[in-house]
Each structure stands twice: as structure tokens, then as C-alpha cells.
Amino acid sequence: MGKLLEVTDLKVDFATAKGTLRAVDGVSFSLDKGESLGLVGESGCGKSTTAYALMRLLSDNGRVSGGKVEVDGKDLVAASDVELRKSRWQDIAIVFQNAMTALNPVMKIGDQLADALVLHQQVPRSQAMARAAEIFEKVGLAPSRLMHYPHEFSGGMKQRAVMALALICSPKVLLADEPTTALDVVAQRQVLELLVALKKDFGLSLILISHDISAVAETCERVAVMYAGQIVEEGPTRRTLLGARHPYTRGLVASMPSLHADIDTLESIEGGPPDLTHPPAACRFAPRCPYAQPICTAEAPPMVEVDAERRSRCHFALDLDQLKPRERSANVAS
């Protein structure tokens, strides 16, 4: 096995009218060969920005301002444009959130797949098209549809085509950025099951980015919970979600409806995320935290080792159960 992806103290800044916004602040994690990691958190927490930073696909006003991203020993942050082009698609690839905008609407999908393979592996066009047909079959699409345009595909089919595009060069690491967005529940289930199958068939290391904890729980071996640009909790998925040692993780889990429990009320996380142009100097979750103590607004919490496999960015990670939460409001389920 061994570490295939190592992200160390990653920082991403955006220039805005209000000043510099640090969307990702000191994120560190690793990924073993063949392992799957889920990045979860509410919208705006930095999940997708982290993924784009790994491949250096940030918008013009964004930049990686610090840290390392090493894939199989290659530092993509320090890589030249030529070196980066060699790594994209072959070392690391991404399934974008919006399948329609990820595909060129005026090119046949087969040509888009073949172009990527010809560009990155310099194979003959006929060989590239044969490979595209193989990948189409792997993702559950008929090779006869290769010469169709994106608008001729349904939403679920477009998502499968985007997955085929990401896999065409057999990458080592696959990033899936909210791959079930805008799909109905049946198509969502199919896409998640396909990701699991492709991970096994291709020997992929997978990072699934989602705000849907249930999707990550079914798909990933490990989970990293993000809040306000930082990882606040990380560990094996089941143990981390069922035995959360950070109040934010507990809030996310409590806000999910259950098929097996009373759903007369759903817990909510009060308030909203901080302004990352001027983030709190201490704990970023403290203003919303039902367990907050004076130290939480005075000192930034360290990342605490809960055990050999879990860590939490909370002053009270080891004795959270001993604190009494303050009264919280609840949203009544309709």
C-alpha cells in the first residue's frame, strides 16, 4: 500500500473586493493506494476549492498560497505548467460537479474522450477511440452512443460520460466533486454504486466531495469534515460519524433524517459560517457551538489525536460528552 496522495498545510487565497479571502486554511490529509476519502461539510466550507487546488484549476483570482500536494512523490504545487499537464488526467483527474458544463456541447462525446487520450498519451486516434468504447462500457454506456452530443444524453448519462472522461487515461487518484448534484434519487444511487465499482475495477484512490453524509457513509472508508476552510475532524467513516468528537460533526449527523427513527423534529445548526475575509482568531465554530466555553473564543483549538486513527480540532475532543450543551432550537419536520 503506502501513501499515494499527501496534502500538507494547503492554503488557498482569493482576491475579493472585501480583501483576501482564505478559502482553504492549513488543510492536511493523506490517501493510500486504493483508499476512499469523503470530504463533507456545508456549502462554502472549502470542499470543492480543495479539490480544484489539488489540480491547480482555480479561477483567475485564486492561488495556492502555501503547502504541498504530492501525488506519487510529485509536488503539483511546485510543478511547472508542462509538468502539471503531464500529471493531470494521468496522475490525478476530476469528475466535475456540473456534467453539462464539463462537456463541450458542440463536440461529440467520443471525440472529447479520444482527444484527452491522444493529448496525454500520444496514442493513435483509432486506439484512442477503441479505449473510449471500453471506458463507455465500464461506466454503463453503450459504445454506439460515443458519436452523440451531450444534449442527447439524460442527466444520469451525462454524469457517466463525465466519469468516463476522467477515467480515460487511467488516473491514480480520482476526485469526484458532488457527482450526484441535480440527479434524481435513483440516478444518485446508480452513480454512487458505479463509483464504488470503478474504484475496485481500476484500483483507484478516490476522494468524494459531498454535503450528503449518507452518500459518503456508503461510499468511503474514511471521512474528513470541513468547516470554514479547515478540517475539523477526520477518521474512519463509521467511527467518526457515530462517535463524533467535534460539535460540528455531531450537528451535521443530527440534521440528517433517519429511516429508522422518529422524525417529528430535525436538529439544526444555529447561525452561519464566518466571513473568511476576517475569520475568528480562536475556534471558528465557537459562535455556533452548543458546547462553547470561554477558552473557545480565546484560543484556536489544536488538532487533537483522539486515537491512532482519529483526530479532532476541538479543545474538548477527549471529554466532549462531559459537557452539557446549551438549549438549541429545532426545526419541525413537515
Rank of each mutant, 00 (worst) to 15 (best):
C169R: 00
K158W: 13
T50W: 03
M129Q: 06
W89K: 07
D81E: 15
G62N: 01
Q90K: 15
L141V: 14
P124A: 09
G62M: 05
T101S: 15
K138E: 14
L58Q: 01
V71R: 03
L54D: 14
L76R: 09
L76C: 06
L54A: 10
S87P: 02
M107W: 14
I109E: 10
H120P: 05
I109W: 05
A53G: 03
R160E: 00
P150N: 10
E83V: 10
V173H: 04
L84W: 01
H148W: 05
S48N: 08
F153V: 01
A79N: 13
S65W: 11
R85D: 07
A166H: 07
V64Y: 03
L103Y: 09
K68N: 09
I94Q: 09
R63G: 12
Q159D: 04
E70Y: 12
E134W: 11
I92T: 05
L113Q: 12
V69G: 09
L37V: 10
D91M: 06
S43F: 10
Q97T: 07
N98V: 03
S80E: 08
V139I: 13
S43T: 15
A99P: 04
A116L: 11
G155S: 09
T101W: 02
K158I: 04
S170V: 01
P124T: 05
G46F: 01
P143H: 00
A51N: 06
L39Q: 00
E134K: 06
L117A: 10
L39H: 10
L119Q: 03
C45T: 02
L117E: 07
K86H: 09
V71Y: 06
H120T: 08
G38L: 01
H120K: 01
H151C: 07
A53S: 08
M100I: 14
I168R: 00
R125H: 06
V95M: 11
S126H: 10
Q122F: 01
R160P: 04
V106R: 12
L103D: 02
S43D: 14
L167H: 06
T49Y: 04
Y149I: 08
F96H: 04
F153D: 09
R63W: 11
A164F: 02
G38M: 00
H120I: 00
A114W: 14
L165F: 12
A133F: 12
V106W: 13
G73A: 02
K47G: 01
H120A: 02
